[in-house]
Design a protein around this nucleic acid. Structure first.
Length: 652
DNA sequence: ATACGATTTTTTTTT
DNA sequence: AAAATCGTAT
């Protein structure tokens, strides 16, 4: 039996035991939001709600996993039937069963961002845009435009006019590319990330029987990180909860940091308007941070105009004040951090209790180098995702061909792995293949070898051989197939191409290992696009002890460490110059600052270099972040500053 | 015409 | 650091 009295505070307990109806939970940082959600799900299951009638939507796989396993631990048995996962995961589940209704085949595949960028590139090429003369947006930029347009329900031309005015004059061509992209996705039977959400909602809006089925099914719908939902996601949740109206949304408007992909914290502000009978609860006791850290965070966030009124109360004892650390330059910043980490470590703080946070991936460069130099083990939670690495995608493309013979992108990627086969050859081969009735069989014909130029024949024969080995093994599951791919030449390819071939091969062996828990190739591939790293139980991305974490602020959300170093706390970096140009940019950047500071439990270091070396220009002076300056601005001047300032001794 | 290596540019954040 | 573009060799 769960001891709710002992394990929850009164604020949390009220939420856990509230029976029915729409609920809005405003949960400040570190107030036990996840705990409350977890216990509520456990309570619902305990009180007899069948687990398959509960939907728990989250933003990351990690959040879903950790909540579900905690629930299982609490109630002492599995909750397999419960729908818990990211919005995209749930969308995928739903769409698999009903793709036909939307004129998709049920075996549709999912494009990850690299796939969609590539598809966009071919669309741009086909549209025949002249590369010379004035600039045309690159594929990833067009992808952002389209994504933002879909997720905010704004017309593409408005998005361009408002956010990309410097491309307005190419609007017509942009539109042509966008139309072509949409058409090609349908032809190729593929969906991108945005389609998953958009089409899920379409399904529920257009087909009453489907909506009724899900609305009837889900007795309780719970949404985590509601401040980061966009209009489409909020609509979907309204629809699946439309029958029983037991919709509980949890979030913190001060931590909304995903507006760049259409998130709108107004979903949260307007929830009471959409559900006038909703009950609002606030979780305002912070268990995570010392009062000093909390004080600094609060002083910062009050500078934002638009937010729910809430006052975070510190539950913890007093600790040390946050520290502002100006360093002479970037190298000294890295040096200071490495030095301080070693001191903390000697003082008994485990490395996994320490994190270095930054606004953008490339900000971590110097710290990485310094930590490597000093032999401090660290783990990077940013940058290239495991499944997006070239070697993983190469191998996966063979599997994709096997599952979907019309997967143009996969054919082209796999073919290009052979010598003397490039962009043009691959185009010719694809044109040949897609006109045959059975592309798999066509590989073994004589015409296949001759369908491109003479120089390509050897390469095509190589592909043929690999494919002969793989063909017919579709039912053996992904793991043995990956083995076969490695053995039939990919391993050699890696050695020729990459200096770090060995570590890539090890990755692939782990990858095969990970894949062995999937029995069907289809299931494996479609989940893959939605995955970012391996799960804790599953292999590579296990929580490794004794490693300092280096992470972007975005990826640090929801996590906590005893000691947090925030680096590059200066104008241009935090806030990021580029982000300030967006409407509402400054407030969003301040929320990021808030998220970063509230990750710290005991100690917070705000670091910034006083000069920056920009190429060609020499050393330029750097301004401290406005978020730091405003902490001691006119309002607070009489009060104490919320931080101490450290002087770094020169060590040379 | 094509492939591929060298050079230049660009880099926010993520499912 | 990675990707797009450019230039050269085949």
């Amino acid at each position: 039996m769960i001891d709710y009295e002992k394990e929850l505070n009164p604020e949390q307990r009220r939420v856990v035991f509230e029976e029915e109806g729409p609920l809005l939970i405003i949960a400040g940082a570190g107030s036990g939001k996840t705990r409350t959600l977890t216990y509520r799900v456990a309570r619902l299951v305990e009180s007899g709600v069948p687990s398959e009638r509960i939907l728990l939507a989250t933003f990351t796989n990690k959040a879903a996993r950790s909540m579900l396993s905690r629930v299982e631990m609490l109630i002492g048995h599995g909750i397999g039937g419960l729908w818990g996962g990211t919005f995209h995961h749930c969308a995928h589940l739903t769409l698999r069963s009903h793709a036909k209704r939307l004129d998709y085949e049920n075996n549709f595949s999912i494009l990850d961002s690299e796939d969609s960028r590539q598809l966009l590139n071919t669309c741009i090429a086909e549209t025949g845009i002249d590369g010379k003369g004035d600039k045309f947006p690159r594929a990833d930029v067009i992808g952002d435009m389209i994504g933002f347009s879909v997720n905010t329900e704004t017309s593409l031309s408005d998005v361009v006019a408002l956010r990309y005015p410097f491309f307005s004059h190419r609007m017509e061509e942009i539109d042509t590319v966008a139309v072509r992209y949409r058409k090609r996705k349908k032809e190729l039977n593929v969906m991108d990330f945005d389609d998953l959400l958009f089409l899920w909602r379409e399904l529920l809006l257009r087909f009453d029987d489907i909506r009724d089925m899900y609305a009837e099914r889900f007795l309780h719908v719970l949404v985590d990180e509601y401040q980061d939902t966009n209009r489409i996601q909020a609509d979907i949740m309204d629809l699946v909860a439309s029958r029983h109206k037991n919709l509980m949304v949890v979030g913190d408007d001060s931590q909304s940091i995903y507006s760049f992909r259409g998130a709108n914290y107004e979903n949260m502000m307007l929830f009471p308007d959409r559900y006038p009978d909703c009950k609002i609860f606030k979780l305002e006791t912070n268990y995570r941070s010392t009062p000093e850290i909390l004080h600094l965070a609060n002083l910062s966030i009050v500078n934002n105009e638009n937010q729910f009124q809430k006052t975070l109360r510190a539950a913890r004892e007093r600790g040390v004040r946050p520290v502002l650390v100006p360093t002479r330059n970037v190298l000294q910043q890295a040096d200071f951090i490495a030095q301080r980490i070693l001191e903390l470590y000697r003082g008994g703080i485990a490395l996994e209790e320490i994190a270095v946070l930054y606004r953008a991936h490339y900000h971590s460069m110097e710290v990485q180098m310094e930590m490597t130099r000093r032999g401090i083990p660290f783990e990077i939670r940013s940058g290239i995702r495991f499944f997006e690495q070239a070697h993983i995608k190469d191998v996966t493309s063979y599997l994709r061909i096997l599952v979907n013979p019309l997967d143009e992108l996969a054919w082209k990627r796999a073919l290009r792995l052979y010598a003397k086969i490039g962009r043009v050859t691959v185009d010719k081969v694809w044109r040949f293949l897609c006109r045959t009735s059975d592309p798999h069989a066509a590989v073994f014909t004589e015409e296949f070898k001759g369908c491109a130029g003479r120089s390509a024949v050897t390469g095509l024969r190589g592909f043929q051989e690999t494919f002969r080995i793989l063909h017919g093994c579709e039912n053996r599951g992904p793991s043995p197939l990956i083995d076969l791919i490695l053995k039939s030449g990919y391993s050699d390819y890696l050695r020729e191409r990459y200096p770090d071939a060995l570590s890539r091969e090890e990755d692939l062996i782990q990858f095969a290992n990970f894949s062995s828990r999937f029995t069907s190739l289809e299931g494996f591939l479609s989940e893959l696009a939605l995955l970012t790293g391996f799960t804790e139980e599953g292999g590579i991305e296990e929580i490794r002890e004794d490693r300092v974490v280096l992470s972007s602020i975005h990826q640090a959300k929801g996590l906590e460490w005893k000691v947090v170093f925030m680096i590059w706390c200066c104008e241009g970096m935090m806030p990021l110059a580029r982000a300030l140009k967006e409407p509402g940019g400054e407030e969003e950047e301040r929320r990021l600052f808030y998220v970063a500071t509230t990750r710290a439990k005991d100690q917070l270091y705000l670091c910034y270099p006083m000069t920056d070396y920009s190429r060609g220009m020499g050393h330029l002076p750097v301004q401290p972040s406005r978020f730091i300056l405003e902490l001691s601005s006119f309002v607070n001047r009489k009060k104490e500053r919320p931080y101490d300032q450290w002087q770094i001794d020169e060590m040379e």
